[in-house]
Design a protein around this nucleic acid. Structure first.
Length: 570
DNA sequence: GCCGTTTTCGGCCCGACTGTTTTCAGTCG
């Protein structure tokens, strides 16, 4: 699937035009188109073949023609020519904090700088300070920006950002001047990776709050420090933006700082159409600037005749239209989850005994838990052979007599490189239910990966496919599965696709979840817990499910104990 | 470059902070 490739192409065009100094709105049109394509719920190739590109809102004749040329020829002449004018290398400069398109353009046209090393050298030699708009401090800031870029690997994972956000909030709350406080930005939207952490505060004494904020013990340096906005860089290189507003603006500020940027642009356009003006200080009458509302976020949506849009949906993927028509999904919530069917124990590579896992599951209020250990050929994970499955089965039978919660005997059976499952049919009969997954030989072509998975899912009685793409953030790329085929076979074989809640997996991703939902795929949210503390990671799987627009009815483990049992051998 | 229940032309979200200026451009979110 070339969706991401096309999205990158459009985004590169936007950046190059930006450096070139082209029309702002034209550049924005390319950026919007790029996002639309990266969020597209189907294969771009099929859309092009069906001549349906131009029907997509935000894609007009010019961009449609360019995408079509790229899909058909594997190349776009317009882009090739653009690259001759502005070297593609320069796009890297835009990631340096403090450098934007205008300065990059000056660096290129006045000093012919196209590489980071050249830029570093020029800064150190003081060659930038005489350029228009540059000064000594600019040189210093660029060098610091480069150092930061080299040190950090970009975005941080959701669970890590969540922890840091919670720590910051409890510190900031120590100030008696803080009234309301919330995380905003991508952290509130629960994106799988977070760029920086946004925190919003309402207060009548912004100066005192900001003074307290910059005394946070873990600070590397203060980037900006104003009356309403402070940015700090933590010693772990994570940037935190803290904003302070008055009580009467808290709701509109929360709406604004939660984003996404694209969602906000659409919201503000909608407000303008209805005769309002929306900014972080409130919703105002357009003509006379009279304040209408602002203290409560829900009220902002209500006044615009929209049903409330949960933060996880605010990505400008059609949520505003659905909200206008009151057709937003009723998103799944943590209380809907009735059990976890992807849990490991000391029988394979888990850290804790079945009993320990069961006790915690009971505390979480679950009706059932499924212990799905690894299969025999996965020696590194102490996979179970026939005899040890029987032994485990006996233990589960005994525990079932002692606990109110139902304990199921499951497996996370390997799909071997040849597509066969790791147990024969007789052995598979021993389990209450069967989960399958890939844990070896990840290097495959799309054809090989897809065939391997299709064959695995086609075996009888498979309940779910665990961590479908096998990705591990910062460690392993997703295996190249053809998603459309995967969805088709999932529906045909009644196999659910897992949303793996492990923070470094979150697999399937939100986009794929939404695509699957649209064609009728069923999902299951599992933690893959190898330690009792990991059972609580279910919240990250739920976040992904919510970002993929899932309702309770799309997820199998929202079913009651009796209902889920009836699915086991179907 | 895209879009239209005011418009096929003329709009397109909007404010804070920094650093380089001497009233504002660039960057950021």
């Amino acid at each position: 699937m070339k969706n991401n490739e096309v999205a990158l192409l459009l985004s590169n065009i936007a950046d190059l035009l930006d450096i070139k100094g082209d029309n702002f709105f034209k550049i924005r049109a390319y950026r919007i188109a790029s996002q639309i394509i990266s969020d597209l719920p189907e294969d771009i190739k099929i859309v092009v073949q069906g001549k349906r590109l131009e029907k997509i809102d935000g894609i007009g004749p010019a961009i449609s023609e360019k995408i079509t040329e790229y899909i058909n020829n594997g190349k776009l002449l317009y882009f090739e020519n653009l690259k001759k004018e502005i070297p593609l290398n320069l796009l890297e400069f835009l990631d340096i904090s403090g450098l934007g398109p205008k300065k990059v353009s000056t660096l290129f046209h006045k000093l012919n700088i196209v590489k980071i090393d050249e830029l570093k050298k020029a800064c150190k030699q003081g060659k930038l300070r005489n350029l228009d708009g540059f000064g000594e401090l600019t040189e210093h800031n660029i060098l610091r920006g480069i150092a930061l870029k080299e040190k950090t690997q970009g975005r941080i994972l959701l669970h890590y950002a969540t922890e840091i956000g919670e720590k910051l909030i409890s510190y900031l709350k120590e100030s008696k001047f803080v009234e309301n406080i919330d995380v905003a930005g991508s952290l509130r939207r629960k994106k799988e990776t977070i760029g920086d952490i946004d925190i919003l505060i309402s207060t009548q004494h912004p100066k005192q709050v900001m003074d307290w904020a910059v005394k946070y013990p873990d600070i590397d340096r203060i980037i900006a420090n104003g009356m309403t906005k402070t940015s700090i860089l933590l010693s772990n290189n994570i940037q935190v933006d803290i904003r302070a507003v008055e009580e009467k603006s808290y709701g509109s500020a929360l709406q604004y700082f939660t984003g996404s940027k694209e969602h906000n642009v659409s919201m503000r356009s909608l407000a303008l159409k209805k005769g309002f003006k929306l900014n972080e200080y409130g919703l105002f009458q357009k003509k006379n600037e009279i304040y209408i509302t602002g203290s409560n976020e829900k009220e902002i949506y209500r006044k615009l005749n929209l049903s409330f849009i949960p933060p996880e949906l605010r990505e400008n993927r059609g949520e505003i239209n659905e909200s206008i028509n009151d057709k937003l999904p009723i998103l799944i919530e943590s209380g809907d989850i009735k059990g976890d069917l992807h849990v490991h124990s000391t029988y394979s590579d888990g850290h804790d005994t079945i009993q320990t896992m069961v006790k915690t599951a009971e505390k979480l209020g679950y009706e059932y838990i499924g212990i799905a250990d690894h299969s025999q050929s996965l020696h590194v994970a102490n996979g179970l052979n026939y005899e040890r499955i029987l032994q485990k089965s006996e233990e589960i039978k005994k525990l079932n007599k002692t606990y109110d919660i139902s304990i199921f005997l499951g497996t996370e059976c390997d799909i071997l490189p040849n597509g066969n499952l790791d147990y024969d049919e007789d052995t598979l009969e021993l389990f209450d239910y069967i989960g399958i997954g890939i844990h070896t030989k990840f290097k495959m072509s799309e054809k090989e990966a897809t065939e391997r998975i299709v064959q695995g899912m086609s075996a009888s009685n498979v309940m779910f496919l665990a961590h479908p793409t096998c990705r591990l953030f910062g460690y392993r790329n997703p295996i190249p599965i053809n998603m459309e085929t995967l969805f088709e076979i999932a529906i045909e074989t009644k196999t659910a696709l897992e949303i793996n809640s492990s923070p470094d997996r979150l697999d399937l991703s939100d986009i794929h979840v939404q695509r699957g939902k649209n064609v009728g795929v069923k999902f299951i949210i599992g933690t893959d817990a190898h330690h009792v503390n990991q059972l609580k990671n279910i919240k990250y799987g739920i976040s992904t499910a919510r970002r993929g627009w899932l309702e309770k009815s799309n997820v199998l483990n929202t079913l009651s104990n009796e209902e889920i049992k009836s699915l086991f051998k179907n």
